[in-house]
Computed example of a mutant assay.
Amino acid sequence: MTIKEIKESFMRVHEIQDPLFDLYKDDERKGVQIIIKQTKKRLAHQQELKDAFAKRFNIEREFWNQGLNQIAGIDEVGRGPLAGPVVAAAVILPHDFKLLEVNDSKQLTDKKRRELVNVIKEKAISYAYAVIDNHVIDDVNIYQATRIAMKQAVLSLTVQPQQLMIDAMDVDMDIPQLKLIKGDAKSNSIAAASILAKVTRDDLMIKYNQQYPEYDFCHNDGYGTKKHLEALKKYGATPIHRKTFAPVRDLTKN
């Protein structure tokens, strides 16, 4: 076989025990040995993904073993920005969910999040999100607004969850809850919710950018970047700015 043909064959290899490795291990062609090395590296990376993914299902698996099958992971995006809403999402994943790249949304590129979010929606038993605008945030504070968003997301699920898993928060509901610090890195359910919440909020901020292009919302998502702060000083606050957040609050005082 030519090196090109061998490369194509190894691209179809998914196990380190594949007989192709033994078949070509003594092949003296440098190109063949490079292909073998690259394939082993690819398989090792894939195994690392599988192991990490399985570990992020440990907590859900404990609940499933107790007969609790409807486990909702909950996360939020947008607590820190100076403008825009806070968005929470709730996701119930099936036992056979195998989207290995699902992880803390902050660890993923925008392109990857957008690829994953459609599959999450397709595979999830149920998912929902809630958007709480800046006016409510100013009225009740960001912590309470986040709790409201999480509660609304859970209530919007088409399936009643038996257990909630929440990233570092609690929700005003009677459903049993497990609060996990950095939960989006410990639970696939919370990670899936973080991806859904992130993409939903990013899309909202892109729309707001069309209304208020001076503030660069499509790049800063409402966070206080240099360009955003300069626009605030020059143009003042928009209707979507959080008036109780410094420096917006300090700007309105002046």
Rank of each mutant, 00 (worst) to 15 (best):
K55I: 02
A54N: 02
Q107E: 12
T39N: 06
F53I: 02
R114A: 14
L99D: 06
R29N: 05
E48Y: 00
E122D: 15
F53L: 03
R61T: 14
V117S: 14
D75L: 08
E48V: 01
E60Q: 08
V102R: 06
V102T: 09
L93I: 03
L68W: 00
K123W: 12
I71Q: 06
V77Y: 12
D22V: 15
E28A: 11
L23S: 15
F63K: 10
V77Q: 13
G80C: 09
V87T: 03
W64V: 04
E122S: 15
L93Q: 09
K30H: 12
E28G: 10
D51F: 07
I35L: 05
A72N: 01
A83Y: 01
H95P: 07
D96Q: 06
G78I: 07
F53Q: 00
V87D: 01
K123N: 13
F53G: 01
T109C: 01
Q107P: 01
I34E: 14
Q33T: 03
E28L: 11
N103W: 08
K25W: 05
F53E: 04
V87L: 00
A88R: 00
G73Y: 03
E122N: 14
A54L: 10
V32G: 06
E62F: 11
E76G: 06
L49G: 03
T39W: 01
K112Y: 10
L99C: 03
K30N: 13
N65G: 04
H45D: 01
I35G: 03
L43S: 03
L100W: 07
L99W: 04
S105E: 07
Q46M: 04
R113N: 08
W64E: 07
I34G: 07
G80T: 02
K37I: 11
Q107G: 08
A44L: 03
P81W: 07
N69I: 03
D110K: 15
R113F: 00
K121T: 11
I92Y: 06
V86R: 00
Q66C: 05
E62W: 09
V91A: 02
G67T: 10
V91N: 05
A44D: 05
N69S: 12
F63N: 05
G80N: 07
L116A: 08
H45A: 06
